[in-house]
Design a binder for these strands. Sequence first.
DNA 1: TGACACATACCAACCAGTCGGTATGGTTGT
DNA 2: ACAACCATACCGACTGGTTGGTATGTGTCA
Lengths: 208, 208
Amino acid sequence: MVVFMNVTQPSTRSKLLNAALQVVRTTGFEATTVDELCRTAGVTKGAFFHHFKSKEELGVEATRYWTEMTGAMFAAASYHEFEDPLDQLIAYVDFRRQLLEDHSIPEATCLLGTMVQETYSSNPVLREACRIGIETHAGTIAEIIAAAKSRHAPKASWSAEGLALHTQAVIQGAFILAKARDDLSIAADSILHLRRYIELLFHYGKEE
Amino acid sequence: MVVFMNVTQPSTRSKLLNAALQVVRTTGFEATTVDELCRTAGVTKGAFFHHFKSKEELGVEATRYWTEMTGAMFAAASYHEFEDPLDQLIAYVDFRRQLLEDHSIPEATCLLGTMVQETYSSNPVLREACRIGIETHAGTIAEIIAAAKSRHAPKASWSAEGLALHTQAVIQGAFILAKARDDLSIAADSILHLRRYIELLFHYGKEE
DNA sequence: TGACACATACCAACCAGTCGGTATGGTTGT
DNA sequence: ACAACCATACCGACTGGTTGGTATGTGTCA
Protein backbone atom coordinates (compact mmCIF):
# COMPACT_ATOMS: atom_id res chain seq x y z
CA MET A 1 0.00 0.00 0.00
CA VAL A 2 1.57 3.23 -1.14
CA VAL A 3 0.64 6.38 0.78
CA PHE A 4 1.20 9.66 -1.00
CA MET A 5 3.49 11.89 1.00
CA ASN A 6 4.34 15.54 0.97
CA VAL A 7 5.45 16.48 -2.51
CA THR A 8 7.39 19.57 -1.49
CA GLN A 9 10.47 17.70 -0.30
CA PRO A 10 11.14 14.33 -1.87
CA SER A 11 10.56 11.31 0.29
CA THR A 12 13.40 8.99 1.18
CA ARG A 13 11.80 6.33 -0.96
CA SER A 14 11.71 8.48 -4.08
CA LYS A 15 15.23 9.74 -3.40
CA LEU A 16 16.36 6.12 -3.47
CA LEU A 17 14.38 5.37 -6.63
CA ASN A 18 15.80 8.41 -8.40
CA ALA A 19 19.27 7.38 -7.29
CA ALA A 20 18.60 3.92 -8.72
CA LEU A 21 17.64 5.35 -12.13
CA GLN A 22 20.91 7.24 -12.29
CA VAL A 23 23.31 4.75 -10.78
CA VAL A 24 21.93 1.59 -12.39
CA ARG A 25 22.01 3.15 -15.85
CA THR A 26 25.62 4.15 -15.28
CA THR A 27 26.96 1.14 -13.45
CA GLY A 28 24.56 -1.69 -14.25
CA PHE A 29 22.36 -3.43 -11.73
CA GLU A 30 24.73 -6.11 -10.47
CA ALA A 31 27.65 -3.74 -10.04
CA THR A 32 25.49 -1.21 -8.23
CA THR A 33 25.88 -1.58 -4.46
CA VAL A 34 23.31 -0.70 -1.86
CA ASP A 35 25.86 1.56 -0.20
CA GLU A 36 26.41 3.48 -3.44
CA LEU A 37 22.67 3.92 -3.82
CA CYS A 38 22.42 5.26 -0.27
CA ARG A 39 25.34 7.61 -0.78
CA THR A 40 23.81 8.99 -3.98
CA ALA A 41 20.39 9.39 -2.38
CA GLY A 42 21.90 10.88 0.76
CA VAL A 43 20.24 8.38 3.08
CA THR A 44 21.47 5.62 5.33
CA LYS A 45 21.40 1.89 4.85
CA GLY A 46 18.79 1.56 7.55
CA ALA A 47 16.47 3.78 5.51
CA PHE A 48 17.09 1.65 2.44
CA PHE A 49 16.06 -1.59 4.07
CA HIS A 50 13.18 0.13 5.77
CA HIS A 51 11.65 0.90 2.38
CA PHE A 52 12.85 -2.12 0.34
CA LYS A 53 13.18 -5.57 1.75
CA SER A 54 16.00 -6.42 -0.67
CA LYS A 55 18.05 -5.04 -3.52
CA GLU A 56 15.93 -7.09 -5.89
CA GLU A 57 12.74 -5.46 -4.61
CA LEU A 58 14.30 -2.05 -5.21
CA GLY A 59 15.04 -3.20 -8.75
CA VAL A 60 11.44 -4.18 -9.37
CA GLU A 61 10.15 -0.94 -7.85
CA ALA A 62 12.64 1.01 -9.95
CA THR A 63 11.23 -0.54 -13.13
CA ARG A 64 7.71 0.49 -12.04
CA TYR A 65 8.92 3.98 -11.17
CA TRP A 66 10.72 4.24 -14.50
CA THR A 67 7.67 3.08 -16.44
CA GLU A 68 5.53 5.61 -14.57
CA MET A 69 7.95 8.53 -15.10
CA THR A 70 8.68 7.88 -18.76
CA GLY A 71 5.02 7.06 -19.40
CA ALA A 72 4.04 10.49 -18.10
CA MET A 73 6.79 12.12 -20.12
CA PHE A 74 5.70 10.50 -23.38
CA ALA A 75 2.03 11.15 -22.62
CA ALA A 76 2.82 14.85 -22.30
CA ALA A 77 5.00 15.02 -25.41
CA SER A 78 3.82 17.07 -28.35
CA TYR A 79 3.82 14.31 -30.95
CA HIS A 80 0.27 13.45 -29.85
CA GLU A 81 -0.96 16.79 -31.17
CA PHE A 82 -0.91 15.78 -34.83
CA GLU A 83 -4.26 14.77 -36.21
CA ASP A 84 -2.87 12.09 -38.51
CA PRO A 85 -1.53 9.10 -36.54
CA LEU A 86 1.18 8.67 -39.17
CA ASP A 87 2.38 12.19 -38.43
CA GLN A 88 2.31 11.26 -34.74
CA LEU A 89 4.44 8.20 -35.39
CA ILE A 90 7.05 10.10 -37.38
CA ALA A 91 7.06 12.82 -34.73
CA TYR A 92 7.51 10.18 -32.03
CA VAL A 93 10.60 8.85 -33.78
CA ASP A 94 11.94 12.38 -34.15
CA PHE A 95 11.20 12.95 -30.47
CA ARG A 96 13.19 9.87 -29.52
CA ARG A 97 16.06 11.21 -31.55
CA GLN A 98 15.83 14.64 -29.94
CA LEU A 99 15.99 13.02 -26.51
CA LEU A 100 19.58 12.09 -27.23
CA GLU A 101 20.67 15.69 -27.58
CA ASP A 102 22.39 17.40 -24.68
CA HIS A 103 22.37 14.27 -22.57
CA SER A 104 25.05 11.93 -21.34
CA ILE A 105 24.78 8.26 -22.19
CA PRO A 106 23.47 7.24 -18.75
CA GLU A 107 20.84 9.97 -18.94
CA ALA A 108 19.73 9.03 -22.44
CA THR A 109 19.62 5.27 -22.15
CA CYS A 110 16.87 2.99 -20.96
CA LEU A 111 16.86 1.50 -17.47
CA LEU A 112 14.86 -1.52 -18.58
CA GLY A 113 17.09 -2.50 -21.46
CA THR A 114 20.14 -2.18 -19.26
CA MET A 115 18.68 -4.23 -16.43
CA VAL A 116 17.14 -7.02 -18.46
CA GLN A 117 20.47 -7.82 -20.11
CA GLU A 118 21.97 -8.71 -16.77
CA THR A 119 19.04 -10.35 -15.08
CA TYR A 120 17.02 -12.19 -17.72
CA SER A 121 18.49 -15.52 -16.78
CA SER A 122 19.33 -15.17 -13.11
CA ASN A 123 16.32 -13.23 -11.90
CA PRO A 124 12.93 -13.99 -13.48
CA VAL A 125 11.13 -11.46 -11.28
CA LEU A 126 13.26 -8.59 -12.54
CA ARG A 127 13.10 -9.90 -16.10
CA GLU A 128 9.32 -9.88 -16.00
CA ALA A 129 9.26 -6.39 -14.49
CA CYS A 130 11.43 -5.14 -17.34
CA ARG A 131 9.30 -6.90 -19.92
CA ILE A 132 6.16 -5.25 -18.59
CA GLY A 133 7.79 -1.82 -18.72
CA ILE A 134 9.03 -2.26 -22.27
CA GLU A 135 5.76 -3.66 -23.55
CA THR A 136 3.71 -1.00 -21.80
CA HIS A 137 5.52 1.66 -23.77
CA ALA A 138 5.49 -0.40 -26.96
CA GLY A 139 1.71 -0.77 -26.48
CA THR A 140 1.17 2.99 -26.62
CA ILE A 141 3.19 3.14 -29.84
CA ALA A 142 1.32 0.14 -31.22
CA GLU A 143 -1.94 2.07 -30.83
CA ILE A 144 -0.59 4.93 -32.91
CA ILE A 145 0.78 2.53 -35.49
CA ALA A 146 -2.52 0.64 -35.66
CA ALA A 147 -4.37 3.88 -36.34
CA ALA A 148 -1.80 4.90 -38.95
CA LYS A 149 -2.00 1.50 -40.57
CA SER A 150 -5.78 1.42 -40.86
CA ARG A 151 -5.73 4.84 -42.44
CA HIS A 152 -2.70 4.57 -44.71
CA ALA A 153 -1.79 0.91 -45.21
CA PRO A 154 -4.72 -1.27 -44.22
CA LYS A 155 -3.57 -4.20 -46.33
CA ALA A 156 0.03 -4.29 -45.18
CA SER A 157 1.28 -7.69 -44.08
CA TRP A 158 3.05 -6.56 -40.92
CA SER A 159 1.28 -6.05 -37.60
CA ALA A 160 1.13 -2.86 -35.57
CA GLU A 161 2.39 -4.69 -32.47
CA GLY A 162 5.32 -6.16 -34.37
CA LEU A 163 6.36 -2.84 -35.83
CA ALA A 164 6.02 -1.17 -32.43
CA LEU A 165 8.33 -3.74 -30.88
CA HIS A 166 10.73 -3.24 -33.78
CA THR A 167 10.93 0.48 -33.01
CA GLN A 168 11.92 -0.43 -29.46
CA ALA A 169 14.48 -2.94 -30.71
CA VAL A 170 16.12 -0.29 -32.88
CA ILE A 171 16.22 2.18 -30.01
CA GLN A 172 17.64 -0.37 -27.57
CA GLY A 173 20.20 -1.55 -30.08
CA ALA A 174 21.17 2.03 -30.85
CA PHE A 175 21.95 2.49 -27.16
CA ILE A 176 24.27 -0.50 -27.21
CA LEU A 177 26.22 0.92 -30.15
CA ALA A 178 26.36 4.27 -28.39
CA LYS A 179 27.76 2.64 -25.27
CA ALA A 180 30.36 0.72 -27.28
CA ARG A 181 31.49 3.91 -29.03
CA ASP A 182 30.98 6.14 -26.04
CA ASP A 183 29.12 8.44 -28.40
CA LEU A 184 25.38 8.98 -28.68
CA SER A 185 25.45 10.31 -32.24
CA ILE A 186 25.60 6.81 -33.65
CA ALA A 187 22.28 6.13 -31.90
CA ALA A 188 20.72 9.12 -33.64
CA ASP A 189 21.90 7.74 -36.99
CA SER A 190 20.19 4.43 -36.35
CA ILE A 191 16.96 6.13 -35.31
CA LEU A 192 17.10 8.07 -38.57
CA HIS A 193 17.22 4.75 -40.40
CA LEU A 194 14.14 3.73 -38.44
CA ARG A 195 12.41 6.92 -39.56
CA ARG A 196 13.30 6.18 -43.17
CA TYR A 197 11.95 2.65 -42.81
CA ILE A 198 8.61 3.96 -41.58
CA GLU A 199 8.53 6.55 -44.38
CA LEU A 200 9.09 3.80 -46.93
CA LEU A 201 6.53 1.49 -45.35
CA PHE A 202 3.86 4.21 -45.51
CA HIS A 203 5.12 6.02 -48.64
CA TYR A 204 5.35 9.03 -46.33
CA GLY A 205 5.93 12.33 -48.06
CA LYS A 206 5.26 10.83 -51.49
CA GLU A 207 1.50 11.32 -51.34
CA GLU A 208 0.00 14.76 -51.33
CA MET B 1 54.07 -14.51 -27.37
CA VAL B 2 51.50 -17.20 -27.98
CA VAL B 3 52.82 -20.69 -28.67
CA PHE B 4 50.50 -23.02 -30.52
CA MET B 5 49.78 -26.11 -28.51
CA ASN B 6 48.40 -29.52 -29.29
CA VAL B 7 45.00 -29.08 -30.89
CA THR B 8 43.72 -32.56 -30.10
CA GLN B 9 42.80 -31.76 -26.51
CA PRO B 10 41.83 -28.19 -25.73
CA SER B 11 44.27 -26.17 -23.72
CA THR B 12 43.36 -24.86 -20.30
CA ARG B 13 43.36 -21.36 -21.72
CA SER B 14 40.82 -22.15 -24.43
CA LYS B 15 38.71 -24.14 -22.00
CA LEU B 16 38.49 -21.01 -19.87
CA LEU B 17 37.71 -18.80 -22.88
CA ASN B 18 34.97 -21.14 -24.05
CA ALA B 19 33.56 -21.20 -20.54
CA ALA B 20 33.59 -17.40 -20.55
CA LEU B 21 31.56 -17.24 -23.77
CA GLN B 22 28.91 -19.47 -22.25
CA VAL B 23 28.79 -18.17 -18.70
CA VAL B 24 29.11 -14.46 -19.43
CA ARG B 25 26.31 -14.55 -22.01
CA THR B 26 24.11 -16.31 -19.47
CA THR B 27 25.01 -14.50 -16.28
CA GLY B 28 26.55 -11.21 -17.40
CA PHE B 29 30.15 -10.22 -16.84
CA GLU B 30 29.88 -8.66 -13.39
CA ALA B 31 27.81 -11.48 -11.94
CA THR B 32 30.16 -14.11 -13.34
CA THR B 33 32.63 -15.25 -10.69
CA VAL B 34 36.08 -16.61 -11.37
CA ASP B 35 35.16 -19.73 -9.41
CA GLU B 36 32.15 -20.32 -11.66
CA LEU B 37 34.34 -19.94 -14.73
CA CYS B 38 36.81 -22.46 -13.33
CA ARG B 39 34.05 -24.91 -12.43
CA THR B 40 32.58 -24.69 -15.94
CA ALA B 41 35.97 -25.08 -17.60
CA GLY B 42 36.96 -27.88 -15.21
CA VAL B 43 40.17 -26.18 -14.10
CA THR B 44 41.40 -24.74 -10.85
CA LYS B 45 41.71 -21.17 -9.74
CA GLY B 46 45.45 -21.44 -9.87
CA ALA B 47 45.25 -22.28 -13.56
CA PHE B 48 42.97 -19.30 -14.16
CA PHE B 49 45.37 -16.77 -12.70
CA HIS B 50 48.28 -18.47 -14.37
CA HIS B 51 46.77 -17.68 -17.78
CA PHE B 52 45.01 -14.36 -17.03
CA LYS B 53 46.34 -11.78 -14.65
CA SER B 54 42.85 -10.59 -13.74
CA LYS B 55 39.19 -11.15 -14.48
CA GLU B 56 39.29 -8.01 -16.62
CA GLU B 57 42.08 -9.44 -18.74
CA LEU B 58 40.03 -12.57 -19.29
CA GLY B 59 37.19 -10.32 -20.41
CA VAL B 60 39.37 -8.59 -22.97
CA GLU B 61 40.78 -11.88 -24.22
CA ALA B 62 37.26 -13.28 -24.43
CA THR B 63 36.20 -10.43 -26.73
CA ARG B 64 39.18 -11.17 -28.98
CA TYR B 65 38.38 -14.88 -28.95
CA TRP B 66 34.73 -14.15 -29.71
CA THR B 67 35.60 -11.84 -32.60
CA GLU B 68 37.94 -14.48 -34.01
CA MET B 69 35.42 -17.33 -33.69
CA THR B 70 32.43 -15.46 -35.06
CA GLY B 71 34.58 -13.86 -37.76
CA ALA B 72 35.58 -17.28 -39.02
CA MET B 73 31.98 -18.45 -38.84
CA PHE B 74 30.68 -15.55 -40.91
CA ALA B 75 33.58 -15.79 -43.35
CA ALA B 76 32.64 -19.41 -44.02
CA ALA B 77 28.90 -18.74 -44.35
CA SER B 78 27.24 -19.30 -47.69
CA TYR B 79 25.87 -15.78 -48.15
CA HIS B 80 29.19 -14.82 -49.72
CA GLU B 81 28.49 -17.13 -52.65
CA PHE B 82 26.01 -14.83 -54.37
CA GLU B 83 27.44 -12.81 -57.20
CA ASP B 84 25.31 -9.73 -56.54
CA PRO B 85 26.34 -8.00 -53.30
CA LEU B 86 22.71 -7.07 -52.71
CA ASP B 87 21.82 -10.77 -52.76
CA GLN B 88 24.67 -11.32 -50.30
CA LEU B 89 23.30 -8.66 -48.00
CA ILE B 90 19.77 -10.08 -48.00
CA ALA B 91 21.20 -13.56 -47.47
CA TYR B 92 23.29 -12.26 -44.57
CA VAL B 93 20.19 -10.91 -42.86
CA ASP B 94 18.41 -14.22 -43.46
CA PHE B 95 21.44 -16.01 -42.07
CA ARG B 96 21.32 -13.92 -38.92
CA ARG B 97 17.68 -14.86 -38.57
CA GLN B 98 18.40 -18.54 -39.07
CA LEU B 99 21.04 -18.41 -36.37
CA LEU B 100 18.26 -17.91 -33.84
CA GLU B 101 16.66 -21.25 -34.62
CA ASP B 102 17.29 -24.20 -32.36
CA HIS B 103 19.34 -22.17 -29.95
CA SER B 104 18.81 -20.98 -26.41
CA ILE B 105 19.01 -17.28 -25.69
CA PRO B 106 22.53 -17.43 -24.22
CA GLU B 107 23.70 -19.40 -27.26
CA ALA B 108 22.11 -17.01 -29.76
CA THR B 109 23.03 -13.68 -28.22
CA CYS B 110 26.15 -11.60 -28.63
CA LEU B 111 28.91 -11.56 -26.02
CA LEU B 112 29.99 -8.06 -26.95
CA GLY B 113 26.59 -6.45 -26.67
CA THR B 114 26.05 -8.10 -23.32
CA MET B 115 29.42 -7.07 -21.93
CA VAL B 116 29.48 -3.50 -23.16
CA GLN B 117 26.18 -2.70 -21.45
CA GLU B 118 27.71 -3.44 -18.09
CA THR B 119 31.18 -2.09 -18.56
CA TYR B 120 30.96 0.92 -20.87
CA SER B 121 31.23 3.36 -18.01
CA SER B 122 33.22 1.50 -15.38
CA ASN B 123 35.81 -0.20 -17.56
CA PRO B 124 37.10 1.68 -20.62
CA VAL B 125 39.45 -1.16 -21.58
CA LEU B 126 36.62 -3.66 -21.88
CA ARG B 127 34.40 -1.09 -23.59
CA GLU B 128 37.03 -0.50 -26.23
CA ALA B 129 37.55 -4.24 -26.72
CA CYS B 130 33.82 -4.66 -27.32
CA ARG B 131 33.72 -1.69 -29.69
CA ILE B 132 36.51 -3.18 -31.79
CA GLY B 133 34.73 -6.52 -32.00
CA ILE B 134 31.41 -4.98 -33.03
CA GLU B 135 32.96 -2.65 -35.58
CA THR B 136 35.14 -5.38 -37.04
CA HIS B 137 32.04 -7.35 -37.92
CA ALA B 138 30.13 -4.25 -39.03
CA GLY B 139 33.08 -3.46 -41.29
CA THR B 140 32.70 -6.72 -43.19
CA ILE B 141 29.01 -5.95 -43.69
CA ALA B 142 29.80 -2.38 -44.71
CA GLU B 143 31.94 -3.73 -47.54
CA ILE B 144 29.05 -5.76 -48.88
CA ILE B 145 26.69 -2.83 -48.50
CA ALA B 146 29.12 -0.49 -50.24
CA ALA B 147 29.31 -2.85 -53.21
CA ALA B 148 25.53 -3.22 -53.28
CA LYS B 149 25.11 0.52 -53.08
CA SER B 150 27.46 1.35 -55.92
CA ARG B 151 25.69 -1.17 -58.12
CA HIS B 152 22.06 -0.58 -57.16
CA ALA B 153 21.72 2.77 -55.42
CA PRO B 154 24.80 4.89 -56.13
CA LYS B 155 23.01 8.15 -55.42
CA ALA B 156 21.43 7.18 -52.09
CA SER B 157 21.96 9.64 -49.27
CA TRP B 158 22.84 7.10 -46.58
CA SER B 159 26.33 5.68 -46.12
CA ALA B 160 27.33 2.03 -46.24
CA GLU B 161 29.00 2.29 -42.85
CA GLY B 162 25.93 3.84 -41.28
CA LEU B 163 23.60 1.20 -42.66
CA ALA B 164 25.98 -1.56 -41.55
CA LEU B 165 25.97 -0.20 -38.02
CA HIS B 166 22.20 0.03 -38.18
CA THR B 167 21.96 -3.68 -38.99
CA GLN B 168 23.99 -4.38 -35.88
CA ALA B 169 21.80 -2.07 -33.81
CA VAL B 170 18.68 -3.93 -34.92
CA ILE B 171 20.24 -7.29 -34.10
CA GLN B 172 21.47 -6.14 -30.69
CA GLY B 173 18.13 -4.56 -29.86
CA ALA B 174 16.32 -7.68 -30.99
CA PHE B 175 18.35 -9.64 -28.45
CA ILE B 176 17.26 -7.30 -25.68
CA LEU B 177 13.60 -7.81 -26.55
CA ALA B 178 14.19 -11.55 -26.69
CA LYS B 179 15.75 -11.50 -23.24
CA ALA B 180 12.89 -9.45 -21.84
CA ARG B 181 10.31 -11.86 -23.27
CA ASP B 182 12.43 -14.95 -22.72
CA ASP B 183 11.61 -15.81 -26.31
CA LEU B 184 13.84 -15.56 -29.36
CA SER B 185 11.01 -15.42 -31.90
CA ILE B 186 10.51 -11.71 -31.29
CA ALA B 187 14.11 -11.20 -32.38
CA ALA B 188 13.41 -12.97 -35.65
CA ASP B 189 10.45 -10.63 -36.23
CA SER B 190 12.63 -7.59 -35.81
CA ILE B 191 15.27 -8.96 -38.17
CA LEU B 192 12.50 -9.50 -40.72
CA HIS B 193 11.67 -5.81 -40.43
CA LEU B 194 15.34 -5.12 -41.09
CA ARG B 195 15.14 -7.28 -44.21
CA ARG B 196 12.09 -5.39 -45.41
CA TYR B 197 13.87 -2.08 -44.82
CA ILE B 198 16.77 -3.17 -46.98
CA GLU B 199 14.38 -4.43 -49.65
CA LEU B 200 12.65 -1.06 -49.70
CA LEU B 201 15.92 0.88 -49.75
CA PHE B 202 17.12 -1.08 -52.78
CA HIS B 203 13.73 -1.74 -54.39
CA TYR B 204 14.70 -5.38 -54.04
CA GLY B 205 12.48 -7.83 -55.92
CA LYS B 206 10.70 -5.03 -57.77
CA GLU B 207 13.20 -4.84 -60.59
CA GLU B 208 13.58 -7.70 -63.01
C1' DT C 1 2.37 5.47 24.35
C1' DG C 2 3.08 3.24 20.53
C1' DA C 3 3.75 3.09 15.63
C1' DC C 4 6.58 4.84 12.10
C1' DA C 5 10.87 6.47 10.01
C1' DC C 6 14.91 6.34 10.22
C1' DA C 7 20.30 5.79 12.22
C1' DT C 8 24.34 2.99 13.73
C1' DA C 9 26.79 -0.94 14.46
C1' DC C 10 27.48 -5.17 13.08
C1' DC C 11 27.70 -9.94 10.72
C1' DA C 12 28.24 -13.90 7.77
C1' DA C 13 29.00 -14.97 3.07
C1' DC C 14 31.36 -14.18 -0.86
C1' DC C 15 34.85 -12.80 -4.07
C1' DA C 16 39.09 -11.49 -6.66
C1' DG C 17 43.45 -12.22 -6.15
C1' DT C 18 47.86 -14.31 -3.64
C1' DC C 19 51.21 -17.50 -2.39
C1' DG C 20 53.88 -21.51 -1.28
C1' DG C 21 54.34 -25.56 -3.29
C1' DT C 22 54.41 -29.68 -6.89
C1' DA C 23 54.77 -32.11 -11.36
C1' DT C 24 56.83 -32.34 -15.80
C1' DG C 25 59.52 -31.72 -19.69
C1' DG C 26 63.33 -29.50 -21.93
C1' DT C 27 68.27 -27.79 -21.92
C1' DT C 28 72.98 -27.70 -20.66
C1' DG C 29 77.43 -29.12 -19.06
C1' DT C 30 80.43 -32.92 -18.30
C1' DA D 1 74.40 -40.95 -20.45
C1' DC D 2 72.99 -38.44 -16.71
C1' DA D 3 72.76 -35.13 -13.19
C1' DA D 4 71.85 -30.42 -12.35
C1' DC D 5 69.10 -26.70 -13.46
C1' DC D 6 65.22 -24.20 -14.93
C1' DA D 7 60.81 -22.75 -16.99
C1' DT D 8 56.10 -23.65 -17.58
C1' DA D 9 51.77 -25.34 -15.99
C1' DC D 10 49.09 -26.07 -12.46
C1' DC D 11 47.18 -26.82 -7.56
C1' DG D 12 44.31 -25.27 -3.63
C1' DA D 13 44.38 -23.21 0.93
C1' DC D 14 44.25 -18.70 2.42
C1' DT D 15 43.35 -13.50 2.87
C1' DG D 16 41.65 -8.98 3.05
C1' DG D 17 38.22 -6.31 1.57
C1' DT D 18 33.42 -5.91 0.09
C1' DT D 19 28.48 -6.79 0.10
C1' DG D 20 23.67 -7.70 1.06
C1' DG D 21 21.28 -7.96 4.90
C1' DT D 22 20.14 -7.71 10.21
C1' DA D 23 19.64 -6.20 15.01
C1' DT D 24 18.91 -2.75 17.89
C1' DG D 25 18.60 1.92 19.36
C1' DT D 26 16.48 6.72 18.89
C1' DG D 27 13.78 10.71 17.78
C1' DT D 28 9.20 12.25 16.34
C1' DC D 29 4.48 12.74 15.78
C1' DA D 30 -0.43 11.39 16.19
